[in-house]
Simulated assay, not measured.
Amino acid sequence: AGIEAVDPHVGEYCTSFDMAGTSLTLLWLDDELEDLWETPVDSPAYRRGSVDRTGEIVADDDADEQAAEIVAADDEGRAVAAVVARAFDIARDTIDENVDELGRLDQIAGDGDHGIGMQRGVHAARDAARDAVERGAGARTTLERAADAWSDRAGGTSGAIWGAILTAVASHVDDDGSPAASALADGLTAASERVLTFGAVPGDKTMVDSLVPLSEAFAARAASGASVADAWRDAADAATRAAAATADMLPQMGRARTHHEKSLGTPDPGAHSLALLAQALITLTDGKKA
């Protein structure tokens, strides 16, 4: 075909967890790109040539330790944080029960890693939340630590998105006291708005299709004076209906976008996993089950 293979690489590069299969990537070079491509580099995911490490920055362990310090919350704040930690227990168990199904859904028009990515993220978040609670943290700090852990450990798009969701919710609650339904509504609205900045909009067949209805339904019910329990129950139902409706959509974002018709009849994995978690967390607000 008249193509000159300048520098073929064969191997495992930027792998996605335990994903099976083969991917072929071609990069069309000009003189400038070819020179840049051959420049030595040393990164966690890719190395070639010899890199001069003169002036390399070394992490300050003392600074990290200071950043990890937690200021104890008041009694009410610690009680709320314990509920947050319980929420992550439930989330972990829910994802563990559905990890294979989430992976199967993602294989249809994606790379099949959504289940294991969610599992890695939620386990890390749960452990971070439990650690924060044991050290006397309130709800805000507990959510922030869980957000960082989920984002760091999960990898992939879902890790970044869930980190953003939890961080946004955390920004609307305090370590001391108990948050009002309005504060939780503001947090969910902020989470929805933050994820929308990533580029997807409702109808693109992504997590957004269940996150937006969740936040809108909760905010509407909270504004009408409903309890947190009632507002969350209605919000979870709205997210579940919306996630199911993604089965009739064609993907407009991400890897699934190139597989259009293959995904018809299958709900979006990210929207589905969010709805699963929303339904599971109803037990936290149900006095008979909590």
Rank of each mutant, 00 (worst) to 15 (best):
A191S: 12
A191T: 07
A191H: 09
A191I: 09
A191F: 12
A191L: 11
S192L: 01
S192H: 06
S192F: 04
E193T: 13
E193Y: 10
E193C: 05
R194H: 10
R194M: 10
V195A: 07
V195N: 06
V195I: 14
L196T: 01
L196C: 10
L196Y: 02
T197L: 14
T197H: 11
T197M: 11
T197R: 14
F198C: 02
G199F: 07
G199R: 03
G199D: 08
A200Y: 09
A200S: 15
A200M: 07
V201L: 10
V201I: 13
V201R: 14
P202W: 09
P202K: 10
P202I: 05
P202T: 14
G203I: 06
G203P: 08
D204G: 09
D204I: 08
D204Y: 05
K205P: 09
K205Y: 07
K205V: 05
K205L: 09
T206L: 11
T206F: 11
T206S: 13
T206I: 12
M207R: 01
V208R: 00
V208G: 01
V208C: 10
V208Q: 08
S210T: 08
S210L: 02
S210F: 04
S210K: 10
S210Q: 01
L211T: 00
V212R: 14
P213I: 07
P213H: 02
P213K: 04
L214K: 09
L214H: 11
L214D: 06
S215K: 10
S215F: 07
E216H: 11
E216I: 05
E216C: 01
A217R: 00
F218K: 11
A219V: 11
A219S: 15
A220V: 10
A220C: 07
A220K: 14
R221T: 08
R221S: 14
A222M: 06
A223H: 07
S224P: 05
G225I: 09
G225K: 11
A226H: 00
A226I: 04
S227V: 06
S227L: 03
S227G: 11
V228C: 03
V228S: 09
V228W: 02
V228I: 03
